[in-house]
Amino acid sequence: MALAAAATISMMSCQTQGIPETELTQQNEPVKISAEVRLARVTRAVQTISDELVEIVNSVLGTRYTEINSYMVFTSDLLADDADMRNIFDKIRMQFGFNIPAEDREEIITFGDLVSYVTEHSVSIPPLPSNPDIRIFEKIREIINEKMDIPIGLICVHSNIRNDFGMGSLDFVEFIMALEEEFQIEIPDEYATRIKTVEDCWAYIESLSDHT
C-alpha cells in the first residue's frame, strides 16, 4: 500500500537523554537514514547496555556509580565477592534474558569484560531499514496516546517509552500486548526487554515480514 505522504528524518528537535531526537516531518521525499545516524545508533545501543550493567552493579553492591571504567576489576576495584558476582549474573539473566555459563563467568574479570560479553550475547533490535514504513510509527504513537494520554506531538522517535511516558511495568506489558494485537505479531520476552524507545518498537515491527 503506497503512502499518501512520506517523511524525512531531521536531527533538529526532541532532545531525549542528551541525544538529538529524530523528528518526522511530512515531505515529498522517502525516509532516508544516513550512515552517521546508523553509527550513532550502534554506539547508543552499546552505551545503553553499559548503563544498564552499571545499574545492576550498583543495585548489588550498594554503590552509586554513574559510570564504571572498563578496566576496573570486580574483585579488587569494585570489591565484589563471589556472592555479589552470582547476584550480578542472576540480575543479568532476568534483565537480558540469557544465562552466563559457569565457564564463561570465570573469564569475566573486569567491567569491560562484562559489557563485551553481554553486548555480544544479548538479542538486539534490528536497525530500521533505509526506507521505513511511516504508518508503523504513526500507529505506535496512536497506541501510546490512547494508553498513556500523551499528546501525539510529544511522541518522538527516540522517546524513552518508560521514562518519558511514565509507563510502569503493567503499562508496558499492556503496551506490548497492544502492539501484538495491532500488528498481529508476537514479541518474545527477550526482545520486549530490549525495547526502550519508540524507534525500537518501529524497528522490531519493520523486521517482521507479516506486520501488515
Results as ranks from 00 to 15, higher is better:
Asp133Pro: 14
Pro151Thr: 01
Ile108Met: 08
Ile100Phe: 07
Val73Ser: 05
Ser116Val: 11
Pro101Val: 00
Phe165Lys: 00
Asp90Ile: 04
Ile155Asp: 15
Ser76Phe: 14
Ala80Thr: 07
Phe74Tyr: 08
Arg93Pro: 04
Val115Gly: 05
Tyr117Gln: 08
Ala102Leu: 10
Leu79Tyr: 11
Arg135Glu: 13
His121Ile: 02
Asp84Cys: 08
Ile150Thr: 15
Lys91Gly: 10
Tyr71His: 12
Thr75Pro: 04
Ile88Ala: 05
Met177His: 09
Phe96Val: 01
Ile134Met: 08
Lys91Leu: 13
Met177Ser: 12
Thr75Met: 08
Pro132Gly: 04
Leu114Met: 13
Phe165Val: 00
Gly97Phe: 06
Gln184Cys: 12
Met177Trp: 06
Phe175Arg: 01
Met72Tyr: 12
Cys156Ile: 03
Phe89Leu: 03
Ile150Asp: 12
Gly97Thr: 10
Leu179Gln: 01
Ala178Phe: 11
Asn131Cys: 07
Ile109Gly: 00
His158Gln: 06
Met148Gly: 13
Met148Asn: 10
Val173Asn: 03
Ile100Met: 09
Ile150Val: 12
Asp84Arg: 00
Ile136Asn: 01
Pro188Thr: 02
Pro151Val: 00
Ser124His: 14
His121Trp: 13
Gly168Pro: 11
Pro151Ala: 02
Asn131Lys: 12
Gly153Asn: 12
Phe111Arg: 00
Gly166Met: 01
Glu182Tyr: 04
